[in-house]
Design a protein around this nucleic acid. Structure first.
Lengths: 224, 224
DNA sequence: ATCAGACAATGATAATTATCAATGTTTAAG
DNA sequence: CTTAAACATTGATAATTATCATTGTCTGAT
């Protein structure tokens, strides 16, 4: 047996739905790959041949337009990095780059398609997962757009706090990238974080963040 | 045979993928319903029991939050009105209301699920369609957020022009709804349209719009 | 037909955010 | 270890957008 990752989401879908023989065949053709922080995993415009799953690490999904770069979302372990457009189009409409050193699992898209076609339960799980992920991204955006800058920054900080399960963490992206993620200028990201520091709501030295007053930060997120 | 709509998207998926007997059974259990302009089709929070397809007319998908209402997208004929969250959650995360008198086709969600499970080709088509629709909505939002107010209004007007295949049409939504669709205030929607009129780019009397200088309108959409 | 409530329009003003400029700091490549 | 490039910071200012106030207009229910 080649698939040994205990908590692999895809494998779990399989276990629930696929015969043992299918699983082995499938696992045999997958490629596990280490990527370094900063390394490009998917390039916007590239043909979609693989289905990519994030085993370990942290990545950003973003797109470049004539008007600048927008970060669409971050991917954490167990996320399908291929999610938008994999079943819809021929080429990727966004890029993916590793933020931390990461391990990705590369599956053949044709095989995934075949599995969807042949295995109804697998298809259902796949639809549900993709549906959930794209809804989360969309609604997150809708939420952001109702907020002012302070609220957006608060939301980002609380998001990271949630990912790292701590009030004390290192922001995995630069100020520039925060700006691209929430749709504001870099200068205003800096200023807003400085404000939060002055108001004693967070400690912030560069990328090190400590949330000192979570209740207030949540209030700011909701009111602005 | 009960399914007689010549251009039904769902039926077409079936034809390509489903046995004749399945199709008849399925069609037998569908309900076709007329809804009047203004009528609520799906209420945010309601349990998801049906899968709804728009045969005729125009609808809006929107959600209400503590900070106000946001229109997520408009649905046109052949759109799946149930798209976000149908396969992901138990209840609708958004509402749907008819803008024009419309005809919807109501299918049993359990039957759709069963078909996905039993019929791989159907599953593939379903994934592709949902994937495409949610990507369109998301990227449309990302586009909007890079634009200033003038650009957003220009984009909306061109969008309607595209739906109605004419430079001369009646906006199907109010100024208030345009504001909810593109994330700006009603006052600024009014002002922006007034600007476009003064600059001789559109004629606008109430809901009647005539695009007089399409090239310029496209430029405004792209530059702002 | 009329009347309340929603919608539309416009101006004045305030609040928010972006832009521009300048300078300090960190980081990665050689 | 050094150095250029990217990143971060801050202030001043301009541009954009929202808010508030007021008035006019349309529309659907009685």
């Amino acid at each position: 047996m080649i698939c040994t990752c205990e908590f692999c989401e895809i494998k779990n879908i399989f276990y629930a739905t696929v015969k043992e023989a299918e699983l082995e065949e499938f696992c045999g053709s997958r490629i596990e790959k280490e990527v370094r922080a900063g390394e490009l995993i998917i390039r916007q415009g590239d043909p979609i041949k693989d289905f990519i799953y994030l085993k370990e690490g942290l990545v950003k999904l973003y797109r470049d337009t004539p008007n600048g770069r927008q970060i669409i979302s971050l991917g954490i372990p167990k996320d399908f990095v291929s999610l938008l457009s994999v079943f819809a189009g021929n080429s990727y409409t966004y890029s993916v780059t590793a933020l931390h050193n990461s391990i990705i699992c590369i599956l053949d898209m044709a095989e995934i398609r075949q599995l969807v076609s042949e295995n109804g339960d697998f298809a259902m799980s796949m639809i549900a997962t993709l549906n959930k992920a794209s809804e989360r991204i969309l609604f997150n955006y809708l939420d952001l757009n109702q907020k002012r800058l302070t609220g957006r920054v608060a939301q980002v900080l609380l998001y990271f706090s949630d990912i790292f399960q701590s009030d004390d963490f290192e922001i995995p992206i630069s100020r520039v990238e925060i700006a691209q993620l929430v749709g504001m200028t870099t200068e205003n990201v800096v200023r807003t974080i400085a404000e939060l520091r002055k108001d004693n709501i967070v400690d912030a030295y560069g990328k090190d963040i400590n949330i000192k007053n979570r209740d207030m930060l949540v209030k700011i997120m909701n009111l602005n």
